[in-house]
Design a protein around this nucleic acid. Structure first.
Lengths: 190, 190, 190, 190
DNA sequence: GATGAATGAGTGTTCATTCAT
DNA sequence: CATGAATGAACACTCATTCAT
């Protein structure tokens, strides 16, 4: 028996991201993805149950990587503003360095495919972050509002600013990035 | 000679929105859309050049309606904060009342189809709003930053909060909506 | 609008019979059938819902033709033996002249596809025949046994004798056919 | 060195019968058969040259078992009618107890696969039976007709009566079985 | 002996679009 | 204007089989 070639799985995920970004879900056929990954279309089915499974797996894998990147240098000992600043900059860095991945998950999240994902399992990874927000509220540093509202101002502007598909012809420089975080902080701080 | 039946065009647009939201671009075939609109697939080609034209036209039509709704009660005489508040609430109202439309344009904007749209033509409608921001900057009421940054904090959180596909299991009530605008204003005000 | 071409439907049915007889259900792919019928595979779906529908429709169509042929010169006024003799010979004639059709329905009836057919609708056509058997029983001409038993000896030997797939290297001649009917009659007569 | 595991061969034959009866030749893929037999698809090729070989072998194996069962208590010393009666009842018993096997060989015999079988080798097993018929003819007990005709009335009705796929919603009871044999005998006796 | 990985060829079906009416 | 018939191209997926282990 041969052993399963993990490189092929990886190549399929990469090819999926590339093609979906370039031509969208609609046009990203199994055979095109397989060709891009240099495997036979039938080989795809050795690694994934079907096309849907491939797409969802790709999404979950990237989302996990993003959450890992964001919480990479998470340090509970720092002041709350610094913790959030670190997460914010880590997120921006990951997105900037992995724009393709990021555009894929944005497109995915806005499509009906998003309903196929086990959201709770993914949210688990953000628990430390959510706890920081709660602490901020308790310490009267952050506004006492629903965490969806906090997330809306803390991270959603970032996702817009970092995504060239939405924010055309404009790139944040280092200083503007700092300004952007200040604005986010102004929005949520008490 | 009958005139092109405008009702059929409308029905096709509606059917497109409905199906794309439910099953995505990939699965929304011309024949399914035609069936949903109660016309023959070939009739679709009387109104639209092809499938792509149908999708782009649908997007543009909704986007125009949205901009009209947002600037509906635009009154240059009001204080800047009030102008923006009105626009903000109008936007929220339109999105809430036309969630299907809104989800469609979000899904569209995050897909490669978005590149087919004449962005500048659409942006024209927002010129009065952009001018208000410039005035705010000139009057030292609003932070002197790129208008993309202002938009990121003024409108993007709203798009997240109003979209149940992104912001699950949570709905803004009237008071939280007010709080949300306050947060947006805190972010952009000097 | 073009009008549906009934010849194409007929060609598809013929092609189905031919191929299924030659290579079996397993190997009779939609594309092979379409090619044999000189239409595009997709055209097949204009006339039939799917492959299963094509196969079942083919079966039902032949079965109807067979029943019509068997009861063609049915004459209730004749003595019972003569009625059955006429049906018997009509059946033999139809089978001999349409061996391909007959082999198809035999193969179909012995496959799991047979469960998809509305048997009762088909049996309706044989009601006059069944009534003759009942009359024969009432008049003490035919054995008083279940009609399945009568059918088993009246028609099933015929289906074996006429089917070269089962009864190899042997063909009934006119005199043997007469003998065969005598044997059937011996089996069922009182 | 392990010896070829005869249990696995048996399991593959059983799985073939089961699946072909349930879903037909067309849908009975090698991998489904292997899964049903709890072996790997490639293991199948240790025991059989290919799929065709598996199907033909299954047929031959069952046909042999059937012939053995029919001639099990064959006793040349008995009167001809009793010999045939014994064979008839043995056949009925085997079919009733092994309906799955029987339906498989009927489906097989009515398919083009049947041409792949060495018929003569199989017929050899029925030689004693054929000789009894010849003796019956010589003794003026049985009609002097081709043996195919005799078989048609002696065994073919049985195959219809015992096969629920053909003879729906009706089961022979012990007495009717006796009647059935009487009818067969009436057909062939002089 | 036995098996899971791997695949080219092929499956049934739907696609976007055109055509004749 | 509006449509159902028709289709080549493509779809997602499974096939029988081989290969390395």
């Amino acid at each position: 028996m041969r052993t399963k070639d993990e490189q092929k799985r990886k190549a399929l995920i990469e090819a999926t991201v590339k093609l979906v970004n370039e031509i969208g879900f609609a046009a990203s056929s199994v055979s095109k993805i397989a060709k891009e990954a240099n495997v036979s279309p039938s080989t795809l089915y050795v690694f994934f149950k079907n096309k849907e499974d491939l797409l969802v797996s790709t999404y979950v894998e990237i989302k996990m990587e993003l959450s890992r990147a964001m919480l990479n240098d998470f340090d509970d000992a720092l002041p709350i503003r610094d913790i959030l600043r670190n997460v914010w900059f880590s997120a921006f860095k990951y997105i900037s360095n992995n724009l393709e991945y990021y555009q894929f998950i944005e497109q995915f999240a806005n499509s009906p495919y998003s309903e196929l994902v086990d959201r709770e399992a993914l949210e688990e990874h953000f628990i430390p972050l959510i706890e920081v927000l709660h602490r901020g509220i308790a310490h009267k540093i952050i506004k006492d509002v629903d965490r969806n509202l906090l997330a809306a101002f803390l991270f959603h502007p970032l996702s817009f600013l970092a995504n060239p598909r939405l924010c055309h012809d404009w790139q944040l420089n280092a200083q503007e990035l700092e300004t952007a975080f200040d604005m986010a902080w102004d929005a949520i701080k008490l």
